[in-house]
Computed example of a mutant assay.
Amino acid sequence: MGAMAMKIYNGYAFAVLFAIVVFGSFMANSATTGTMDMSTAILLRVDQLGNGDFKKIQDAIDAVPSNNSGLYFIWVKPGTYREKLQVPADKPFITLSGTLASNTIITWGDTGEIIQSATLSVFASDFVAKSLTIQNTFGTSGKAVALRVEGDRVAFYGCKILSYQDTLLDDAGRHYYSNCYIEGATDFICGNAASLFERCHVHSLSTVDGAITAQHRNSPSEDTGFTFSGCKITGVGAALLGRPWGPYSRVVFALTYMSSVVLPQGWDDWGDQSKQSTVYYGEYQCYGPGANRTKRVGWSKSLSNQEATPFLTKDMIGGQGWLRPSPTHFKRGSTIVKANVP
């Protein structure tokens, strides 16, 4: 690439990066994380064509030092990255960002044990992902996790998460999903995290009675559960809102559009009637043909304003204290560059 072409390329690159950062800043709440400088991040670029710091995403993650004390921003240029990725627990405060979910794709096709099949596994705390497609292309015949999240204080913005069975293993910790698209057929949002899904599109591939959620809360003392607020549910056939992986499974749908894909009974006890008295399955001011509660199972709840209030803010995940804005400056070597520098 010639000098002039490289200059134009770099100018375009920073313009796109600025767009990503501005988008993220609107999407995230301000945070307080001790004395760490949240305005400046070390920038690592991933480009399959070799016009970055790394050609593979995992190489960029591996380059972050263990127990890092500052922000790292891994910018993934458009492309399809065939990688099975892990973000280790000793590498917090990483942002992994594409340009658009439609053109920045992380894909793998594994199956087997649910905790081993994930295309992307996040064990680190304070991780953020933006504008990425994360998919498992294994197919319809077994467990195939696209995304496993076990770290605490983890957020996803504008991502597409795609598979068939167990698509999103929302395993443990406090998590936030904003404007994400999540697709699957069987128990495709599962695990025992405390998670808030805001303005997300949930799409069921089930043709008969596959469950959207399989929340795994095991005890009434566990402060975990899934809340879907202002979301949209669509599908190709018929689906349940959820079934209990754990006996104290807790799921709430609030202010959510439900298409006719949602079965009239709404929920299932997974063949164990004893769970009917211990689960917490609630709906609040949902709408659409699938939101009609006339034939809902009697052990699900139509929530009052008072009952719904604790589920309608980021306080349920402590988000006001840890959701952070995007950095406004990027550091490369000893140089600090503003996000809007062309």
Rank of each mutant, 00 (worst) to 15 (best):
E198F: 10
G298F: 05
H201V: 07
L205D: 08
N218L: 14
T256M: 04
S206K: 13
A238I: 00
Q215A: 14
Q273A: 14
L255R: 03
V208T: 15
Q215N: 15
F226M: 09
L205P: 07
T294K: 13
A254K: 03
V261H: 04
I212G: 01
S206F: 12
E222D: 13
S274A: 14
T207A: 13
I212W: 03
T294G: 08
Y287M: 06
Q265A: 08
V279Q: 11
Y248L: 08
R296W: 15
S259R: 02
S277C: 00
K275D: 11
H216W: 13
T256L: 01
V279L: 10
I233P: 07
P247E: 13
G246C: 10
R199T: 15
H216E: 15
S221Q: 10
R293P: 05
V202S: 02
H201Y: 12
G290V: 01
Y284F: 13
P244F: 06
V279H: 12
L241C: 13
G282M: 04
P244L: 10
W267R: 09
V252E: 02
F226R: 08
V252K: 01
T256Y: 02
M258T: 03
W267T: 08
T213N: 15
F226Y: 12
D268Y: 10
A239Y: 00
C200Y: 01
Y287D: 04
N218Q: 15
G235F: 11
T227I: 11
T224M: 10
G266D: 03
W299E: 07
S219G: 05
A291W: 04
L263G: 07
R199G: 07
G290W: 01
T207N: 13
P244S: 09
Q273K: 13
T294H: 09
R217L: 08
A238P: 00
